[in-house]
């Protein structure tokens, strides 16, 4: 193996049919060290391609190859191959423009920055989802007004997700309380979505099966068409406001007292 002066200031190799390196240029040594066989600098993914193309039956050809530098970095190069006879080939390697490498490197940096941002966004999204879930759970608090009556004011839009989050808390609060009258207050409800409403209707139905008297109060004109179109269980009664429910109760109680006095 000898060092030769190549015409061009580029990595250059002379090899035999078994790919043994017979001669090399100074530039080749600087880039690849002193490999004794071409196999040593051909990257694994390029090997089959090189086997096919660095062969006497392709007398004069140029191929792209991934080659391994002395420091183990893999670089892409155009390799010009000329076989002078069956036993000797000359290879001139032109590494792909370093400008391209620079662009590729900055693209990679951008890509990993984007990836980082994406991950952060996912984390933020998860946090926001937790907040929404928590918010949803708090959107239908169970408030005991007295021994037999409880109020459930609904807040915000009636959506499927919200009703799903609310259901568990509501059912267990009902189970634990002695209330036999439940007032669903729609005063602070925004939009009513169909899926959300259907879910709420199924919860109300379950409560009605548990033997509770159910009232819906505080409906706004905007709610009414949808509520009637999608319909709640039949035994649910509608009242205008909490005030009306309380005054009705008072009247009923007063009447009962009067009746008791009379008897």
């Amino acid at each position: 193996m000898k060092r030769v002066e190549a015409i061009f200031p580029l990595p250059y190799f002379e090899i035999d049919a078994a790919w043994n390196i017979v001669a090399y240029s100074q530039e080749a040594e600087e880039l690849f060290g002193l490999p004794d066989n071409l196999t040593k600098i051909v990257d694994e993914g390029t090997y089959d391609k090189a086997r096919e193309w660095v062969d006497f039956h392709h007398r004069k050809t140029v191929i792209e190859m991934n080659v391994i530098k002395e420091n183990s970095d893999v670089i892409l190069a155009d390799v010009y191959i000329t076989w002078t006879d069956e036993e000797k080939a000359e290879l001139l390697l032109i590494p792909k423009d370093s400008q391209v490498d620079k662009v590729a490197a900055s693209l990679k940096t951008l890509q990993s920055e984007l990836l980082k941002t994406k991950t952060e966004l996912i984390e933020e999204k998860e946090r926001a989802e937790q907040v929404i879930e928590q918010n949803n759970k708090l959107s239908a608090p169970f408030i005991s007004l007295n021994k037999e009556t409880a109020l459930v004011p609904l807040f915000g839009d009636v959506s499927y997700e919200k009703m799903m989050s609310v259901e568990q808390n509501l059912l267990s609060a009902v189970r634990e309380s002695e209330a036999d009258e439940l007032l669903f207050d729609f005063t602070a409800v925004g939009d009513i979505e169909k899926e959300g409403f259907n879910y709420l209707a199924s919860v109300i139905k379950a409560l009605s099966h548990m033997g509770l008297d159910l009232f819906v109060i505080g409906l706004r004109p905007g709610h009414v068409p949808n509520i009637f179109k999608w319909s709640l269980p039949e035994d649910v009664r509608f009242m205008q406001s909490l005030e009306q429910v309380i005054s009705n109760k008072r009247t009923r109680r007063d009447n009962e007292r009067i009746r008791q006095k009379e008897t």
Binding site: G45, Q111, S112, L115, K116, E123
Partner: peptide, 30 residues
Amino acid sequence: LGTGVPDDHVLQQIEKFCPDVICISAALSY
């Protein structure tokens, strides 16, 4: 997580995400 993510960042992600399964891929033998 895709490609080009340094190991320490990967480990950080795994610790935060708490996955049931960790899937790793590689192509080249080196």
